[in-house]
Design a protein around this nucleic acid. Structure first.
Lengths: 70, 70
DNA sequence: ACTTTACGTAAAGCGTACATTACATTACTT
DNA sequence: AAGTAATGTAATGTACGCTTTACGTAAAGT
């Protein structure tokens, strides 16, 4: 899974700390998310999409086995 | 957070087991998600939205502190 | 040179999203 | 009445999302 968190954050001219405060999470969480160290919970993904005024699907790009195959 | 998994599943005429197979998760996971026992991971939410041909935001309804306040 | 700002790493701990297995219940079919 | 399909509950275990605290680095301002 790829994320556009860093790109969106820069577009909005925000620092990691500002974003973490808006989200009420630690700055570490933002760093880890941007670096792809782990994936956000559904609620956190939703909050991020709200802040960046886009959909969850616009913020995260799913690949391979993260998609349904049938 | 509310989910419309059960409603969508019924609309599509699927059993919990059929859905669990498509998702490659256990049937217990479906039951727990539908009953609101816990929230799906982002990847699982995405797969569910794919199967029901809707967006993640259409499948899950976020309430209160699950939204950004500012 | 020193400070400040923004970004990064490391480590330990907690809660929860899942898995797995086994058994119970309800309703429909025959 | 007995069997089967669909749904549910319970118990235990594992992996990971996220926290907290503390320290490291690099660039820019003064």
């Amino acid at each position: 899974m790829k994320t556009l968190i860093r790109e969106k954050r820069n577009e909005w001219g925000m620092t990691q700390e500002e974003l973490s405060i808006k989200l009420k999470v630690s700055r570490q969480t933002i760093i880890s998310l941007e670096k792809g160290k782990y994936k956000p919970s559904l609620v956190l993904a939703h909050k991020l999409a709200q802040i960046f005024e886009c959909s969850i699907e616009d913020l995260f790009i799913f690949e391979g086995d993260e998609n349904v195959v049938e």
